[in-house]
Amino acid sequence: MLKLLERTHVRPESLAVLVGLAVVMAILSPVTGSGVRVFLTANNFFNIILASATFGILAIGATYVISAAGIDLSLGSVLGLASVSGAALVVTLEWPWYFAIIGSLGAGAAAGAVNGFIITRGHVPAFIVTLGMLGIARGLALIISDGRGIYGLPPEILFLGQARPWGIPTPVFILVAVALVAHYILAHTPFGHHTLALGDNENSARATGINVRRQRMMLYTISGLMAGIAGLIFTARVNTGDPTAGLSYELLAITAAIIGGTNLFGGRGSILGTMIGALIMGVLQNGLNLMAVQAYYQQMAIGAVLIAAVWLDQIRTRGRSLQ
């Protein structure tokens, strides 16, 4: 088990945190009529994964850019833009159902490509470009939808969010499939090796002949694409292209990546670690919901987890370099 974790670059601590947190939530959660803790019911289990699926896919995008020493603050807003883009094509313009997929994924990838283009060509820091895109994408989503949800998608799309083949919600299948592909690419292909090397030492990447500009361009496009997929799932789940979808989800996504073991300064990242990170965030949110903690406090809790995770990591790396 430890060996598997090591091979997949998952930190044992993050797994321990997940288990510990689940135990705490189980103990603190209320009891159902049949005497079972609500947290432990199968239904609740799917609730957690279902909620985690959306920002889990965002967190995959975050893992790619952060492990290359970049950042994408626009993830949540691009999710919203993707949600309304897909819905507008199919509902407002009455195009065939699959344009919801093309529209969402296309809008996400396009926003990511714009980020990548300005970062690599204009030499504007990723922090600034994606912060700007956070505003632009949200504004554009509100303009496209006229500030209202675009309601009523065809059944083919609803299937992607609401169906339960073999009792398991479709988004779970999508999350697992995307995570497996993303893991393969990051851990086992030259593209993944180059991504980590770029985040580790840009000079090293350049000197060994890696096309740094193209690499970055692709990473931000991938990040946008992930927001597109997440936006599609969101639309399908709530049957609405929602311009406010994914609001402050970048906080969840980046936190999931960081507590999953991605190095904030680049050079290290693991998709499986990120998935555990996303589950931790999902359990935390779900548990707080069950205990009827107000959403305002939940926001605070998540922000605090992010800061604490980076702080602990700093203490640990300092300790190591002092040895």
């Binding site: 580790d200 030492n201 000197a207 050079g267």
Partner: peptide, 9 residues
């Protein structure tokens, strides 16, 4: 001169 190695790899 600065070796250009990726320290964490």
């Amino acid at each position: 001169q600065d070796l250009a190695l990726a320290a964490q790899q």
